[in-house]
Design a protein around this nucleic acid. Structure first.
Lengths: 292, 292
DNA sequence: ATCTTGTCATAGAGGTGATCTATATCAGAT
DNA sequence: ATCTGATATAGATCACCTCTATGACAAGAT
């Protein structure tokens, strides 16, 4: 069986064309090199070097082998460099799953910070609902998931990232409703604008109404946070939305927040990771940025 | 510095996804594998495997490295195989079967070329008739056979090498018979010189006569092509022989070819190999020379 | 709840083979 | 004849690979 270290000695010897110099480069003694080459030649049953009076020269067979060994070692060197780059975050990729709205309204600052700090890392985003995203996480298709909480899953580790505060907002046409705290009954009778059924935001507000005995039926259902805000602004009704997603509009006065007698349920955003899997270096860097 | 033997251990472990099984394949103990992987991970400063309750799984970084290491080892394997093949060309042997006449008159150039190109390979020739030769081939006593075609045998692979053109030749004493095309009847009445019964050449010409209703009985039967030509030259009669075997004599005017009304049957020479057997490197080299 | 099984991790001991030192040998230069 | 630069060989040494023994853990079976 060929000792792999012999290959290294062979390679250096072939390049130096001199056992003594190869020994110096390899930090071993010249007899070590001589003996290793001898053993290797015996093992393959062929002479790999012509012994000259001043140094050595590859035989035909030695040249043939040299090509293979050189490429092989070049491959190992590339592998080591690639690993080093991964370790230094000069290379790599991270696969993140989150809903579009979370990506746009919550993650963008951290993604920008991460991308700025590690420009060599490829960020791959996939969107979807919390259920879909956690499935992809568990199947190893993504490295980490930004999800609405709560989630109970023994395969996942969950870290709370942020608290989401929801609110109802209106445009100029419905501004009079902000004059006093609304009862839930009053609210239920207004034209409501919600996200699609099944979204976490939608589910949480339906539960809130149901807990107070109201079956709510929104006038408008949209799949996009920006559209929710826009329809509210245009006077189509009352939109239910996370406050942080529309704080620009609230501050500039294009949208107004309703005050409710009954407090809205608190919601959180969390980071989900696979419990049994160590994060890649790239993913670890992102997680650290998220926790700042 | 990475110990190259760690790469081998890493590769096996990655493929087995189990340290205990990798240890078995490598013929070392499981703690050896565990310790080697640990040292390697410390040396590169990255985790290469997730430890699961049943076995291990490559990390992202481990997968990255695996690609490089796999290619690198494949390259070394190729190099070893190439060397092995070169070694075979230095020290191997080839066993060829053919009739004496084919050896002398057809194969000599290729044998010379082969011998010159691979002086370390021992060429062993065995002579005999096509039937005997194919038997030895099937019994593994020879590597390849040069035979007269056609041959139908499911155990053999046949490649056509050359077309043989036969002819009848005479010496000075019978030269007058070359003045006009001979009928087969005229030919059958001349003293004929043939090879021994059973030889392919003999069989083919007997069939030719029989197809025209003649039972031919040669005056002289010889076992040697050179003797055939010599007896024709000496005026003993008309010899049936392959033209390429006597083209020197035909050109120099010591032998003359008869013209026949009825064309002689075309014959071919082929290379027969065992279908179920991979050729040695030495034999492969010879086959390539034959196909030039 | 407890036991069994299969797996990986660690510690200390052992031994083997890679490498050392010492030196011989060789070819070419002076 | 001597020197120089190189490789080859022999016996000794010791570094480190691998061993044995055993611990730890998780999953599955009872």
């Amino acid at each position: 069986m060929i000792n792999l270290e012999w290959y290294r000695i062979f390679l250096h010897t072939a390049k130096c064309r001199n056992l003594t110099k190869a020994a110096q480069e390899l930090h071993i003694t010249q007899p070590s090199v001589s003996y290793a080459i001898k053993q290797m030649e015996e093992a393959v049953g062929l002479k790999l070097f012509h012994r000259l009076s001043k140094g050595v020269e590859l035989t035909e067979e030695g040249r043939t082998l040299f090509d293979y060994v050189e490429q092989s070692f070049a491959m190992l060197d590339s592998g080591q460099k690639h690993l080093h780059n991964l370790k230094q975050l000069h290379q790599g990729e991270i696969r993140i799953g989150a809903s579009d709205s979370l990506i746009k309204h919550l993650l963008l600052p951290q993604l920008n910070a991460y991308h700025q700090q590690y420009p060599g890392i490829r960020i791959r985003l996939s969107h979807g609902k919390t259920g879909e995203i956690t499935k992809r996480l568990k199947e190893g298709e993504i490295d980490c998931a930004i999800v609405h909480l709560p989630i109970e899953d023994s395969e996942l580790t969950i870290h709370t990232l942020a608290v989401l505060e929801d609110c109802f907002v209106v445009g100029e046409d419905f501004r009079e409703w902000t004059n006093h705290p609304l009862s839930t009954k009053e609210l239920a009778e207004l034209p409501l604008i919600f996200l699609s059924p099944g979204s976490s935001t939608r589910v949480s507000i339906e539960k809130w109404f149901a807990a107070q005995g109201f079956a709510v039926n929104p006038d408008i259902e949209l799949g996009n946070i920006d559209l929710l805000a826009e329809f509210a602004r245009l006077g189509y009704g009352v939109a239910f939305i996370s406050r942080s997603f529309v704080q620009d509009e609230l501050q500039s006065g294009t949208l107004y927040e309703l005050t409710l007698e009954e407090p809205l349920p608190p919601r959180s955003i969390g980071l989900a990771l696979r419990r049994d899997m160590k994060l890649s270096v790239a993913a670890e860097g992102f997680v650290q940025i998220l926790h700042r």
